[in-house]
Amino acid sequence: MIVLHAAFPIDSEKRDEALDLIADLAEKSRAEPGMIEYRPTTDVDDPNVIRFFERYEDEAAFEAHSQTDHFQEFAAALPDLLAGEPEITRFEVESASDVEL
């Protein structure tokens, strides 16, 4: 499984535009084959930081996502929306299990 965590600092003046693009991106991404989870969220400490939590079945699903029209559209718009450098971390996970609280 491939897991991605990304944080995008969004220009406050372009936040609404970014959220519209992200909502469309998330809806279409969730329908992709091999997508386990695709969750964009706003940071509770800074609402202008959008965090993505993504889980893919495998490398093929991850690569296919990056080639979709909806991802390419978002990637092309992103530089104009950012207020700083994104932070993206990729994890390759061999196993995962639920944790009871």
Score class of each variant (00 low, 15 high):
Glu100Ile: 08
Gln72Lys: 15
Phe74Ser: 06
Ala31Tyr: 10
Ala96Gln: 10
Lys14Phe: 02
His70Ser: 07
Lys28Arg: 15
Pro47Cys: 12
Ser29Val: 02
Pro9Cys: 14
Ser29Arg: 12
Thr41Val: 05
Pro33Gly: 13
Pro79Val: 11
Gln72Val: 13
Thr68Val: 08
Glu94His: 06
Tyr56Lys: 06
Ala26Gly: 00
Gln67Asp: 15
Asp24Phe: 06
Arg39Gln: 02
Glu87Arg: 13
Pro33Val: 12
Pro86Cys: 10
Val49Pro: 00
His65Phe: 13
Val44Gly: 05
Glu13Phe: 06
Ile50Asn: 00
Glu73Trp: 12
Ala26Pro: 00
Thr41Glu: 09
Ala96Leu: 08
Glu100Asn: 12
Arg90Gln: 09
Gln72Glu: 14
Ser29Glu: 06
Met1Trp: 09
Leu82Phe: 00
Leu25Met: 03
Pro86Met: 05
Ile36Met: 06
His5Leu: 05
Thr42Leu: 06
Asp11Asn: 11
Ala18Tyr: 01
Ala76Asp: 10
Ala18Gly: 01
Phe62Cys: 08
Val99Leu: 15
Ser29Asn: 04
Ile36Lys: 04
Pro47Gln: 14
Ile2Thr: 10
Thr68Ile: 06
Ala23Asn: 01
Gly34Phe: 03
Phe74Val: 04
Arg55Gly: 07
Ser12Ile: 11
Met1Asp: 09
Ala77Arg: 02
Ala7Arg: 14
Pro47His: 14
Glu17Pro: 01
Val49Phe: 05
Asp11Pro: 01
Val3Leu: 15
Arg15Gly: 05
Tyr38Gly: 01
